[in-house]
């Protein structure tokens, strides 16, 4: 028989005028290898059918299950309940994103706005000739681009960031990482001046205060600090 764990969740439905923000505690038995995803599924199926949280892949790939776990932004599917010695876990929705209900937030709308802002796609100054083979890319450069492409846009870097917490228009580490990714990619012919037009302001690269919570909480262990510093050095001189 496993130990008893207590999961406290902030429940609130902003679209329901009768709903008030309330902390609700659930007590359940811990099973071997239990993740927060499993625990929440158990609560939803057997204790509280009304509890809302997001999940898709259960494997740290989709980035849908981000939440504050005892204050720290984490993916629920990659967080073991056994990591919490006292067996007490408090769950809050990710800040900075629009709250849908309980632990469910709308990261999609935020990410879409960010993508449109930083033009998160390959841009070329010349027209692509589809009859020609694509320009070769050095394997080391391709690896560097693929490394930054590992970002799953879970929003944990944004929810960890004090600038994003205070200033809602801040593009966040995820946005700056996207720009770094395209600035490295040789298929993209945009210049530093072009990138400056996208993020050269206090809501962009110059808003970052280098507090490092983005990198320290990133579930994909991306080296966000060095990429943000790289973009800052490039754009401050552009």
């Amino acid at each position: 028989m496993g130990r008893e764990i207590t999961i406290k969740v902030l429940k609130y439905n902003p679209t329901d005028s009768q709903s008030t923000p309330t902390f609700v505690e659930y007590t359940l038995e811990e099973t071997p290898g239990m993740t927060l995803y499993i625990a929440l599924t158990k609560i939803k199926s057997s204790i509280d059918h009304d509890l809302t949280s997001d999940f898709v892949c259960r494997a740290g790939i989709c980035g849908a299950c981000g939440m504050l776990v005892n204050g720290k932004p984490q993916l629920a599917c990659r967080t073991l309940t056994s990591d919490f010695e006292g067996g007490k876990i408090e769950l809050l929705p990710l800040p900075t994103f629009k709250l849908i209900k309980d632990l469910s937030v709308d990261t999609g709308a935020w990410m879409e706005k960010m993508s449109l802002r930083v033009h998160s796609w390959i841009e070329k100054h010349e027209e692509t000739d589809l009859a020609k083979l694509e320009k070769r890319v050095e394997p080391a450069v391709a690896d560097e681009v693929f490394e930054l492409d590992r970002c799953i846009e879970c929003g944990i870097c944004v929810a960890s960031c004090s600038t994003a917490i205070m200033r809602e228009d801040f593009v966040g580490a995820v946005g700056l990482n996207r720009v770094a990714r395209f600035s490295i990619d040789p298929h993209d012919t945009r210049t530093d001046e072009d990138f400056y037009e996208l993020i050269g302001d206090d809501d962009g690269i110059f808003g970052c205060m280098s507090l490092m919570a983005c990198e320290d909480h990133c579930p994909k262990n991306l080296s966000l600090q060095s990429k943000i510093a790289y973009m800052r050095r490039k754009l401050v001189m552009s």
Partner: peptide, 8 residues
Amino acid sequence: KLMGHQDT
């Protein structure tokens, strides 16, 4: 306070 992150 919630996050308890050193650099923050």
